[in-house]
Amino acid sequence: MTESTEVFDADIHAKAAEIIGRYPVARSALLPMLHLVQSVQGYVSQEGISFCAEQLDLTDAEVSAVVTFYTMYKRKPCGEHLVSVCTNTLCAAMGGDAIYKKLAGHLGENGTPLGHEQTSGTPGEQGSITLEHAECLAACDLAPVLQVNYEYYDNQTEQSAVELVDALRKGERPQPTRGAPLTDLKSAEQQLAGFFPDEEQFTADVDGPSAAEETLRGATLAQDRGWVAPAMRDEEANHG
């Protein structure tokens, strides 16, 4: 028995096999499989690396090389929640830098700000939070943005961000601006691996809000003003 089979149960083995089945070549399963092992432990541990290596007939070194390349794979145990603040230029100019600094101070202890990818509280326990600064999160019209477990909280301020992390620390789960009801980092990682909750919950999650006012501004303006794209001709598009 290797260590990894003690950490990862039969269900995870079955899921790993299912991931491999999605691809013509097994190694393509590595990225989702790493999300899967993060869903178990909240980070990619040495056992997690060995587990993936065994499933894919790779060496630990080959898997490690991949793990260390990607920022979403965490090498230390994370909090119940991962809070990612965009500090790329546009968000930073709109307040993102100030939000990150405020949260780092707020979550720090004894006057020491919490560092990048450091955790407030005991990793894995309720209310624990890992903080990171992130690069562009593709929501610039909603700047400054942050994410909790990769769900969007748009148009943030220092105050709203502090209120958000305080609620998370108390075990509350405020609804994202866009996204499904908040869960925790491990559940999010399982979904990133392509495994979703049962049908009813999944449908509810999928229907979580997505269309911010900003997203719809162009479409709304066009509707208000009666602007449309040129009409398509009735006859089937023909061309020679």
Partner: peptide
Amino acid sequence: TVHAGAGAYICGEETALLDSLEGRR
């Protein structure tokens, strides 16, 4: 097949994306 990446801007470059999709850096 819907495939989720893992946080690397460079994977927007088409050949880096292919390497990533093959399970590599």
